[in-house]
Design a protein around this nucleic acid. Structure first.
Lengths: 350, 350
DNA sequence: AGCCGCTGCTAAATCGATTAAACAACTGCG
DNA sequence: CGCAGTTGTTTAATCGATTTAGCAGCGGCT
């Protein structure tokens, strides 16, 4: 039992295929209501669903979008971007091709070619983390960059507002009374966009609060639990009057390592050490003990934004600058006032 | 500058479109090498890429596959299934439509319709966890079930061999000398396929080892760190001669909770308590201290299997039973011999 | 010369839709 | 009655490929 074609509907309704097409697509053509009914009933009866391939060939719109990513789909991390993009796509009857290239340029080129051959209506180029990328030359113009910025501009892009995120995180710590706040940064393995922006936010808040940044409180480590633990150990080994009372960690995994380091010394979070993470990773942030205060990456919203721009539903405010998506802070239980000794000390220094 | 069509190539080479098609598809037709060269050069020159939509219409093969999932793409969990499926697809020049339905039946039905309309060559129906599902009636026959079993059979399916995984986990504990081994099971919110199978494996190993299963050592809890911690507390509150020396946890999150419970009582892992998890979740298992011995879910391999069957590259051994994919144990540092007192006790009981 | 068979290539049908143009039937009007 | 204008529907071209059947040209054979 092959799928019903438009000609089957036409035969069943006793009209031409043109009429069927006109009726089913609600074209404002001069067709009597009686005929319209007959066609619709016939379509129902034979179980007709238009063949999108044939329609796409004729109309030159495939109602598909290609989403190319380095490895979003296979990372625990950024799947919410896909969800956002998909939700918008679904709302508009669009199907999404997903290609994970594993950051392999050959695969990437081939994927772009294959997607173009499939006549996708738009493409989205997505990254696992916020970074700067060289746009592959074969990318069609109008391709939307998701969670990355094209090195030379020329494409709409959406990225998290990491600077504002850093501001929010450090402000929370300052508001709790901390003065000696460390930034446990990542050991830049990549163009360190996110890292730098969060650092800028950190510095901005210190400046606002009249706190001199202490270079010793900016440490770097591997982006892992072990790295965070080791870096935190270094910080906690500092002489007492330089020791931080709060940590702003580049991400939640590093923060998890900070917890381990603190616990090993018998320090309680947040009584003895306040910690703020970044990313709001499920399975990390909320499962820590106590639950981690962190900054959420707006993956879902970025995914939506990218798809909306790709489909032409919205246009970027400034076509030449990436759209900055706010990163909301999520308050949990890892931030408290600094310990009494440190608090008095900080007061002394003010 | 529109894309080059086959007629552009034909014009450039001074031949008909038929000849171009014949040459570029390597049809064994009677065409001189000189002409072949001319066509290929012309194609190169105008930058010709065949329009897959037009080709798909004519050949009735779209070189696309639809992958419907409840929420694979947006879960940190099972992205490796996608990677496996995609790798196979890419190796065969197939593009993958991904649709996350969020387990909404309306969305699901609509997705199946849209994919059928796009003339996908095959469909894969995937779940986030191993469970039994009612196959939507509109699924085309031959649809491959990935990480789930259709309630009434009739479709090829691949699932993890949870029974064998349970066997492997518990055998590791028995081999280390444990006799009082608890199974920290999940509180069945769903058809508990995985849970039951792992339990069967657990019981089988106990039987092999001549250990009487103690019902008090089979506890259930919420599938979360908090749940695991609470359940472990219950177990550790047992009188000493009933207290388990080892835990087989339904998953890594529960195991993470078990760590917390143990640490809170000053018990060291594995010296005082051995723990085995399940799932080998990145960001959980390896980041625990000490790293967790666990059983890996073969997501990547299952994804490959499903796509291979979908593309007809391989056929299931037994078309009526789900294919069982082995779950390898990954040995890390959370299993050791039972503490001396317990060990002597267990010897007494043998 | 006439016919056969082979080689190299092309004409044209086809896939299943959309849509502009054409057409038949009817109405209204002078 | 004859012509123009409407209305309701159909005809046919089109999208860009694949593929079958067939045509033209040539060499060999009788």
């Amino acid at each position: 039992m092959a799928r019903a074609r438009i000609s089957d509907v036409a035969a069943a309704a006793g009209v031409s295929t043109a009429t069927v097409s006109l009726v089913l697509n609600d074209r404002t053509a001069r067709i009597t209501d009686a005929t319209r009914d007959r066609v619709r009933r016939a379509a129902e009866e034979v179980g007709y669903t238009p063949n999108s391939v044939a329609r796409g060939l004729r109309t030159q719109r495939s109602h598909t979008v290609g989403l190319i990513s380095d490895r979003i789909a296979t990372t625990p991390f950024a799947g919410r971007m896909l969800a956002g993009a998909q939700d918008v796509a679904r709302e508009h009857g669009i199907l999404v091709f997903l290609v994970d290239t594993d950051a392999d340029e050959t695969v990437e080129r081939e994927a772009i070619r294959a997607l173009a051959a499939q006549q996708v209506d738009a493409m989205i180029y997505a990254c696992m983390w916020h970074r700067v990328v060289d746009a592959p030359s074969s990318l069609p113009r109008g391709t939307v960059f998701l969670d990355c910025r094209p090195a030379d501009g020329g494409f709409p892009a959406v990225v998290p507002d990491d600077r504002a995120g850093g501001v929010a995180a450090v402000r929370a710590l300052v508001a709790a009374g901390h003065r000696r706040i460390a930034y446990v940064d990542v050991d830049e393995p990549h163009p360190p966009v996110a890292s730098d922006l969060r650092h800028e936010g950190y510095l901005q808040v210190l400046a606002e609060a009249g706190i001199d940044p202490d270079p010793a409180l900016h440490v770097r480590c591997d982006t892992s639990s072990a790295g965070g633990r080791e870096a935190t150990d270094r910080l906690l080994d500092l002489p007492e009057d330089h020791r931080p009372t709060a940590l702003f960690c580049f991400n939640d995994r590093i923060a998890a390592g900070a917890y381990v380091a603190a616990h090993r010394r018998g320090l309680a979070v947040p009584q003895d050490l306040s910690i703020v993470g970044y990313d709001d990773q499920q399975l990390v942030a909320a499962d820590l003990d106590p639950p981690l205060t962190t900054v959420a990456l707006p993956h879902y919203e970025m995914g939506r934004w990218a798809m909306e721009v790709a489909l032409g539903i919205r246009t970027p405010d400034d076509p030449d600058a990436p759209h900055l998506m706010p990163c909301p802070i999520v308050d949990r239980d890892s931030v408290g006032p600094p310990p009494a000794t440190a608090a008095s000390d900080s007061r002394r220094r003010t």
